[in-house]
């Protein structure tokens, strides 16, 4: 028995030494299943376009932006497009997103990051945060802002615009967090664009109200008008409806396809113990 165990151990040692010396060509990563490239990230992949919705120049631009932010603030900002979310449900997409970011962070030896997953098969999206990213971009505030900023262009098919807006907004949130003044209900996230939009809406309402009020004041000055009718001179009780006929002629029916609710329906949130999360359909 002792002899058999000893023989076995020596064979194993020999094989390992041979393999590690390169004499026998066995890829240990593949042997141990660490090279599952279909759904894993290599350490340098902040942007993964498995669904192939971006051109190579767009990939380059977005990739550069993501690297820039991640380096500056030490929190990784990821984008991942796919067609491989296993089920048509928002929780499946959320799980998929957490799996991808956890794999990435583990491979990188890091703990802080945010990922934006877009599944082109079921048209699902999810943003999930880990570590410090959960504090910088909170589930209840930051992810909601990202949702409002990005998902419209995702629905419209402007993928580069969507991901660039995602990156730029993440950058602003991470910068504020880095400075010790993270955005939240006590420190609202306001951009010049938002201010201009709000002012425009206010101006339109202001114009309408001003017109109504000043027209009313102007009307006060006018008391002279021609009478179009003789309603004041109708002889009381003289109205006699002698003929009243309602004849149905024909009808027609038209139908229009109902618009499926776009991004706005069914937001899911709550990553629970895994981190912060928000998702939906587009």
């Amino acid at each position: 028995m002792k002899k058999i165990i000893a023989l076995f151990l020596s064979i194993v040692t020999a094989v390992s030494m041979t393999v590690s010396s390169g004499a026998i060509d066995i890829d240990l990563d593949e042997f141990y299943g660490l090279n599952d490239t279909e759904n894993s990230l290599t350490p340098t992949d902040l942007l993964t376009d498995n669904a192939d919705i971006l051109s190579s120049s767009e990939e380059e631009r977005i990739g550069e932006k993501l690297e820039d932010i991640s380096e500056k603030y030490g929190i990784d900002v990821l984008v991942y497009t796919t067609r491989d979310v296993p089920y048509d449900s928002e929780s499946a997409c959320m799980d998929f997103a957490f799996d991808r970011i956890e794999e990435y962070l583990y491979a990188e030896g890091k703990s802080d990051g945010i990922i934006f997953v877009v599944d082109m098969n079921y048209r699902l999206w999810n943003m999930s945060t880990k570590g410090k990213a959960e504090e910088a971009i909170t589930e209840s505030y930051g992810l909601e802002i990202l949702d409002k900023k990005c998902i419209d262009s995702l629905s419209d098919g402007d993928y580069e615009e969507c991901f660039m807006k995602y990156a730029e907004t993440c950058e602003k949130f991470l910068k504020a967090y880095d400075e010790g003044k993270p955005y939240g209900p006590t420190r609202p996230f306001v951009t010049a664009g938002m201010i201009i939009k709000a002012l425009l809406i206010g101006a339109v309402i202001g114009l309408v109200v001003a017109l109504i009020v000043t027209s009313g004041l102007k009307k006060q000055l006018k008391s002279v008008d021609k009478q179009k009718t003789a309603n004041n001179f109708v002889r009381r009780g003289s109205f006699d409806l002698k003929l009243s006929q309602d004849l149905f002629l024909y009808k027609n029916v038209t139908k229009t396809r109902r618009q499926s609710s776009s991004s706005g329906g069914g937001r899911s949130g709550g990553g629970g113990s895994r981190g912060g999360s928000r998702g939906g359909r587009f």
């Binding site: 001179f233 002889r235 003929l243 002629l249």
Partner: peptide
């Protein structure tokens, strides 16, 4: 998946008397 609109068309006739004074 559809919204339907049915439009029915009618011919309506009204007639009678109305008195006016002064």
């Amino acid at each position: 998946n559809y919204n339907y609109t049915e439009t029915s068309y009618y011919q309506i006739v009204r007639g009678g008397l109305l008195g006016f004074e002064r």
